[in-house]
Amino acid sequence: MAQLQLREAVRAALVEEMSRDADVFLMGEEVAEYNGAYKVSEGMRDRFGPNRVIDTPISESGFAGLGLGAAMNGLRPVIEFMTWNFAFVAIDQIINNAAKIRYMSGGQFSFPIVFRGPNGAAGQLAATHNTSVESIYSCFPGLKVISISNPDDAKGLLKSAIRDNDPVVFLESEFMYGMRGEVSEEEDYLIPIGKARIAREGDAVTIVGHNKSYWRAMEAAEMLEADGYYAEVIDPRTIRPFDWDAVVSSVRKTNRLVIVDESNPFASVSSEIAFQVQSRCFDYLDAPVRRITAKDTPAPYAKNLMTYYLPSAEDTYQACRDVLYLD
């Protein structure tokens, strides 16, 4: 195992896949000469040259669509959005073209493409730079959505995403790029898309959290352990397709579910998890499903408000105590 920052793990996946397959290329704003806005692609232009690590003008709609055309005509593009907030001007390309053209062509064309970049809150940047987009893209059949929480998953899942023959929305995080973690050095380390990870076993309550929210879930589980209760923490890792079996079998064991989700609450990933769990194992639930999400507002700027806006470990811990009827 190697100790890598999350950005290095993403880079390792890109470098390995580009070395393995000449059809893979990386395109985005500042990915080449600037070495990446968050230094994910540092050194890659020197290694692969300007024809495979390609800077773009600030034209998300243009280069997202360019990636789709390239995928349609036989290549395997990786399109980097500096952040997913900026992909909103390209959302027509992702929703109408990436997700739907294959279907409308009766399966004649496919889109082996990865759209990747940091998602969700990134600090005191106010409302337009703090959006969690996973529930939006998960709405549209035809897209796969992956949201990673640690360097090992970043590497194994990005490699799988690049090899996947369908369009993948791959969600990283500015806050986690510097996070270090053990990363497998196994050759061709591939983590299957659609498989959740049971990060911590327990029997008192199931906590589901992805991306940064996974860490809130783990912190809450530790706080709960001090009370003598063991939470089972599940990182779904893939939002579409979702590993329902992992969550449902855990809830059958713990009989309680708390979801941490940095999305705004309405029609969020947590909404769908709660619906699916009640319809698949209603009789096993000993308490209503609880969720901790971002507030039902745009993200604020002021530090205290932004802290209040985001899901916290404390709120998650309290929700666990609530479903255990401890107070």
Partner: peptide, 9 residues
Amino acid sequence: PVATGIGFA
């Protein structure tokens, strides 16, 4: 933009 990418390929 898709046409542009087809040409790119």
